[in-house]
């Protein structure tokens, strides 16, 4: 499992895990993120059950288990959180932040000790260490109950399935050319994202943020100017059109 530090300022760090060359075949490659601040840390979209052991091992290179106090699941998909039953035994004191809509579904992955913290539809702000993190609504992108994570201090937006591309595990980490990258995202966004209205509303809100890095759950990450280029591309892309 590859680990890359995306941001580091004093004891505030963003680490991305992914590009797992050893992952079993047939499983979609995912990016997992750890945000550390002081003696607390949050794992964003910790991933599928098959990835649990390499993920835990990779995470423990940066932070002891007891300091992983928070988990976040942007939505209910298995590639996001089917590892929950195992995290539940590894981090019994942790809290899981996830859309209220999915609580009774996510519990099917197994949750005896971890506490479920329901994120209301309008989103919320939490404190991890001395960092404020905002859960930003991203409903219908693609899941009908879905949030992204905004760290204003680091300027990083974890954008879940938005901006996702399916690529081999040895693909570069950053999008360097939107023209060449866009075709790799097109079909996924058109098929997975059901609502043009939701898409435009999200773009409007994200443009108001000063996003330096956009970090999706699959594929490459975006820096400026590619973040802006992505928003422009997404804006004109008709989505939810698979039935046509």
């Amino acid at each position: 499992m590859l680990a890359t530090v995306l941001y580091e300022q004093d004891d505030h760090r963003w680490i991305m895990f992914g590009r797992d060359a050893n992952k079993p075949d047939g499983i979609i490659d995912t990016n997992q993120y750890l945000i550390q601040s002081g003696n607390q840390a949050i794992l964003l979209d910790p991933g599928g059950i098959e990835l649990f052991a390499p993920m835990l091992s990779a995470v423990l290179k940066y932070v002891p288990a007891e300091q992983i106090t928070h988990l976040f699941a942007s939505h209910q998909d298995p590639d996001i959180i089917s590892s929950l039953g195992l995290w539940d035994q590894a981090l019994p004191k942790a809290e899981l932040y996830s859309p209220w809509l999915w609580e009774s579904f996510i519990r099917h992955f197994g949750m005896e000790s971890i506490r479920f913290r329901a994120i209301p539809d309008e989103g919320m702000t939490i404190q991890v260490g001395h960092t404020q993190l905002q859960f930003i609504p991203a409903h219908y992108l693609h899941s009908s109950g879905n949030f992204h994570v905004w760290d204003a201090k680091a300027g990083i937006l974890m954008s879940g399935d938005v901006g996702a591309a399916m690529e081999p595990t040895d693909a570069p980490l950053w999008v360097d050319n939107m023209e060449r990258h866009a075709p790799k995202m097109k079909k996924f966004h058109q098929r997975w994202m059901p609502s043009n209205d939701a898409k435009l509303d999200w773009i409007r809100r994200v443009r108001q943020l000063n996003v330096k890095v956009m970090a999706p759950q699959h594929g490459r990450l975006f820096k400026q100017p590619q973040v802006g280029e992505f928003l422009d591309w997404f804006e004109t892309l008709p989505v939810g059109i698979a039935i046509k």
């Binding site: 423990l60 290179k61 288990a65 007891e66």
Partner: peptide, 9 residues
């Protein structure tokens, strides 16, 4: 795997 904080589990 002997990660830095492996003993914490």
């Amino acid at each position: 795997q002997n990660s830095t904080h492996a003993d914490s589990i």
